[in-house]
Amino acid sequence: MFKNLFKRESNRREVLAAGFVVPDSARCVQCGICSFNCPINIDVRNFAWQGRPIENSQCINCGECVTRCPRGVLRFERTSLFAEA
């Protein structure tokens, strides 16, 4: 069981490290909570409006915007995401 938990955590970290935060614009209502909570002041909301991944080199993938969004707009994603799932 512990081995399984460890593997999961390692998978999770790998995705976080290699991923982008990606918006689903159809869910977004531009409330601004993501931008408000970004620790390095990236205007995440503007990316969501344009439907673009948060490809800002300053983004540290902390996940604050993903967690805080009241409408689940944001998620982490990387290429071949499900290959190792």
Binding site: V29, Q30, C31, I33, S35, W49, R68, P70
Partner: peptide
């Protein structure tokens, strides 16, 4: 401004000025 965002202004999760995209 974000009208759906008014609910989160009410909870105090977002500042009023942030409602303007």
């Amino acid at each position: 401004y974000s009208r759906p965002g008014l609910a989160y202004y009410l909870t105090g999760e977002v500042d009023e000025k942030l409602l303007f995209p």
